[in-house]
């Protein structure tokens, strides 16, 4: 509970309002800039080897002229029952007890890519090569985020470095983490405020309130993965 003794577990949850999301992809760039996600160039991307941790899925619906588009930002859903975790032979991806997140330990990863096959959200990317940031482009690399080398998996972390910093800051000031204080890069950048991030255990948090919505759903919830990303379905007014 908020204002409690501070020993409660935090449970970080993201709410994405698909009715607000306009598909602009600012989150994609923000994520890449925060998390040192490598760019791979045209040929590699044409081959399906983009490193995007976050992608905005776009579907065309209908036929001319009643064409519609739907967007759905899709990233690691930080499943409570994550299918990627048990299949890793070396515990490179596992559940962190502190943050209740699905974490990827780059140093431990040996690159079996089993987790990626088992992820129903196709949220994981693999470092096919060593990617470069030609100097001085590497100056903007975030010192809080490991730069990954070839042969390992990576994925959205809910910007765990920000969560940790925010929690440390709050602890140092002897207070609870305030709602909205910790934001992953995507939520922070989102121009339409479609992405909201917060602590589920805080009953007054914005995510908790938004999740009450009738529009709320979890993607592929029937698989029992218990994702920590809650989508709010988009509405359409039919003319």
């Amino acid at each position: 509970m908020a204002g409690g003794n501070g020993h409660e577990h935090t449970k970080w949850v993201m709410v994405i309002d698909l009715d607000k999301c306009n598909g602009c992809n600012a989150c994609v760039t923000a994520c890449a800039m925060e998390n040192n996600v490598a760019f791979t160039g045209e040929e590699e991307n044409a081959y399906g080897r983009g490193m995007h941790w976050l992608r905005v899925i776009r579907y065309w619906e209908g036929e001319w002229p009643n064409v519609r588009v739907r967007y759905m930002p899709m990233m690691c859903q930080q499943c409570s029952n994550a299918p990627c975790e048990p299949v890793c032979p070396v515990f490179a991806t596992l559940h962190s007890e502190a943050e209740e997140l699905n974490i990827q330990v780059y140093n431990r990863c040996i690159g079996t890519r089993y987790c990626a096959n088992n992820c129903p959200y196709i949220a994981r990317t693999f470092n096919w090569f060593d990617y470069e940031w030609p100097e001085p482009l590497n100056f903007h690399l975030n010192p809080d985020v490991t730069v990954r080398r070839r042969g390992i998996m990576e994925k959205c972390t809910f910007c765990i470095q920000r969560i940790n910093q925010g929690e440390e800051q709050a602890a140092a000031e002897g207070r609870e983490v305030r709602d909205g204080e910790i934001q992953p890069a995507c939520a922070q950048a989102c121009p339409t405020e479609a992405i909201v991030f917060g602590n589920w255990q805080d009953p007054n948090s914005k995510v908790r309130q938004l999740a009450q919505s009738q529009r709320g759903f979890k993607y592929l919830h029937e698989l029992g993965t218990e994702p920590k990303v809650i989508y709010l379905a988009s509405e359409k007014h039919d003319f």
Binding site: A82, E85, P86, F91, T93, H95, E97
Partner: peptide, 12 residues
């Protein structure tokens, strides 16, 4: 061995 270094995976 899991008791030596308890690591939880996949809600198992």
């Amino acid at each position: 061995t899991p008791l030596l270094y308890p690591l939880y995976v996949g809600g198992q």
